[in-house]
Design a binder for these strands. Structure first.
Length: 442
DNA sequence: ATACATACC
DNA sequence: TACTGGTATGTAT
């Protein structure tokens, strides 16, 4: 009868918009005229190969949803009750093993590439800019986000949304350099910190916090950067000092409750006490210190999240962006409060597709995810529903994986056997075939 | 076992 | 004109 037509057409517009329309999930994109923006995006994209392909993918997702809904219909009250008991048994176990003893920090540079480009070219400040090309943007500054311009959007569409947009080409070498500067700071707080790309990192500062308790104030004192360069990085600082003369000011946000802010004496260049600030021993203070040092060293701001595990820390760092920080206290209730009305889409690992599938089940927030735990255990694979359960309980990794022990590299004797050469050749042919197929699609 | 899909930066 | 490319992990066949 009307088998997949219903899902196909009724949620088609909705689905395609979800897939191709504006994703206002990112910081700085609240309260935009989404209707208008989506109209422009759709007009620019309609009829393209890309659009057709996305349509097809969306249909596939719809079919997956249809399958899931059929499965759901067949579930009896009995089965659901049984599932509820089993899942709740697991919930008790998980609760018992809940670990709130680690302090994990997620550091996220604000609009990183765009911020670097603005720092190095003051002309760009005050203007909406994006970094990338007409084909693809890597990031945009907050000004551009007001127009709906965001990362992963092609530049030519962004130009339609914001005709005055300046697109700066990528300069990875530069971003890598800045990233290295930031990492030099981070490693002091956790030598095993885990970088995620150039602009993000996780730190486990549990040990640092313990040691820090016994530190004298002098070890927690940091100086405002002045025109004179520090021993290292002379070149970089000289270059940026030029940009500063006009009136670069240090973020006031950091010092709401820290008094010694002295913007009246820019001529003071020595490392005098008035030119310094002392940070406390709490996790918040540590993170303020990290952010202060990053800003002093690079003139760029970062946002941060502090929480008992990586998942929560990441979501936390998003909360007060840009140039802010947020902490979830290491208490079960604080974790649950944070999750209560949080849309599942905010959770790392939950993207458009999973969002849509769960929405079909009436699940939008993390609390709803928890309420439906029994049903989910019957509809999804074990790894999926257990992941959903972890999310809804606010559980995540409390330590940072060392990727030290990768799968051992093949030794030279293993590489050059005839068999391996044959396999390599086969793989290359397969890849080539794949490429060709992709091309045909275009 | 392999291809295909989802998600992240 | 033009919708990334690399990596990790999960799903489907």
């Amino acid at each position: 009868m009307d088998h997949m037509k219903k899902v196909g057409s009724s949620s088609c517009n909705d689905g395609v918009l979800l897939r191709m329309g504006l994703n206002d999930n990112k910081a700085g994109m609240q309260g935009l005229d989404k209707e208008k923006i989506n109209k422009i995006i759709m007009e620019a994209t309609k009829g393209s190969r890309f659009y057709e392909n996305e349509l097809k993918k969306d249909q596939q997702v719809n079919q997956r949803i249809e399958k899931m809904m059929q499965l759901k219909e067949k579930i009896t009250t009995q089965q659901l009750l049984k599932a509820q008991l089993q899942v709740d048994k697991l919930v008790i176990e998980l609760e018992q093993s809940r670990n709130l003893s680690s302090t994990i920090v997620h550091i996220d540079m604000d609009a990183f590439y765009a911020a670097v480009e603005m720092r190095d070219n003051p002309e760009l400040k005050e203007k909406p800019i994006a970094v990338g090309s007409m084909s693809m943007l890597s990031t945009s500054n907050y000004h551009a986000r007001r127009f709906g311009v965001r990362a992963a959007m092609p530049g030519f569409i962004a130009k339609k949304l914001c005709p005055h947009l300046t697109i700066v080409p990528l300069n990875f070498e530069k971003y890598g350099k800045v990233s290295k500067e930031v990492r030099e700071i981070l490693t002091e707080y956790d030598p095993n910190f885990m970088p995620m790309g150039l602009d993000e990192a996780y730190l486990n500062i549990t040990e640092h916090l313990e040691e820090r308790l016994n530190w004298p104030e002098d070890k927690r004192r940091f100086f405002f950067n002045t025109e004179s360069a520090t021993e290292k990085d002379k070149d970089d600082i000289n270059m940026s000092a030029k940009c500063n003369e006009g009136g670069y000011s240090f973020s006031p946000v950091l010092f709401e409750d820290n008094t010694p802010l002295m913007d009246d004496h820019p001529e003071q260049r020595d490392r005098s006490v008035e030119n310094s600030v002392i940070f406390g021993t709490s996790a918040e203070e540590v993170v303020k210190e990290i952010r202060f040092r990053i800003e002093q060293k690079t003139q760029l701001t970062a946002s941060a999240g502090i929480a008992p595990n990586t998942m929560l820390a990441k979501m936390c760092s998003d909360r007060n962006k840009p140039n802010g920080q947020c902490r979830i206290a290491p208490e079960r209730q604080a974790v649950l409060d944070f999750l209560k009305d949080l849309p599942i889409r905010k959770v790392p690992g939950i993207g458009k597709v999973t969002e849509k599938m769960l929405k079909a089940l009436g699940i939008v927030t993390c609390s709803e995810l928890y309420q439906q735990r029994a049903l989910l255990s019957l509809l999804f694979s074990e790894s999926s529903w257990r992941n959903f359960l972890d999310i809804s309980l606010g559980l995540g990794s409390t330590h940072l994986e060392k990727d030290g022990e990768r799968k051992s590299m093949s030794t030279e004797s293993e590489i050059n056997t005839a068999e391996d050469q044959y396999n390599l050749c086969r793989e290359l042919c397969r890849d080539l075939a794949q490429e060709l197929q992709k091309e045909r699609l275009k």
